[in-house]
Amino acid sequence: MAYPTDPSAELATYAHPERLVTTGWLADQLAGDHPGLVVLESDEDVLLYDTGHIPGSFKIDWHTDLNDPVTRDFVDGAAFAKVMSERGIGRDTTVVIYGDKSNWWAAYALWVMTLFGHEDVRLLDGGRSAWMAEDREMTREVPTAQEADYPVIERDDAPIRAYKDDVLAHLGKSMVDVRSPGEFSGELLHMPDYPQEGSLRGGHIPGARSVPWSKAAREDGRFKSRADLEQLYQSEQHLAPEEDVVVYCRIGERSSHTWFVLTHLLGFGNVRNYDGSWTEWGNAVRVPVEQGGPSA
């Protein structure tokens, strides 16, 4: 990683502190010349960036930029290269991503960039809300990027992405369902009046543990401390860093957040995000489904 890492003490205890930056560190970098560093904002709301963003940052939209418009899949190498190049990002660029909702969409963008093997991509701890809570500079000015030449890279899904068949083969091993308790138990099938958004069956994948994603975040959107995260996932849920773990939610966004926590903050070596998640599993024919709350 070419760009220096944030040496802040509060990040030092995480397994991979080079994957996070603090608001203070980012502000310091942006105050001077910072060749080789690009900041991206990734939000749930496609217009939020336009209401004001960190100066010099570019918008990346999880849906219009990172998802294929036709197939339920991510963009291919050529489309990804275009998205990166237009934002002035080359293969060696250090990318810092931040966003709303405790960085859940930022983590999703980071995970997709990791599918393409982009080496140095980091999250801004606390995301948009932390930056704004500290009254740091925001602007409506959209920067013009000097177009970069991002290579066309073929996505390598296998290490960190699970498909439905992978999950079937994984049954009996560790799995984390990061949705709300109501979605986990099967009480909540889908949002009212929205059958097309929902699933035909409610519940969870047998054997999955219920750890709602937000348990990994503090009130202010920053990640909990290493000790608190170890308590949550390792002591309470008995997950071990050397295990194969699959995480999922409804469409794979919230579980990207948990994927980041397990992989980069706790140092788990083999975590895959099942982005088909409940909107695939809950509609698939003859896959096993379990209902009810988590067993004690």
Partner: peptide, 16 residues
């Protein structure tokens, strides 16, 4: 095409 079809459902629901 600007906000993605997925996001349009909110407006459909508001109208109904």
């Amino acid at each position: 095409e600007a906000v993605s079809p997925l996001r349009m459902r909110g407006m459909v629901a508001m109208l109904s």
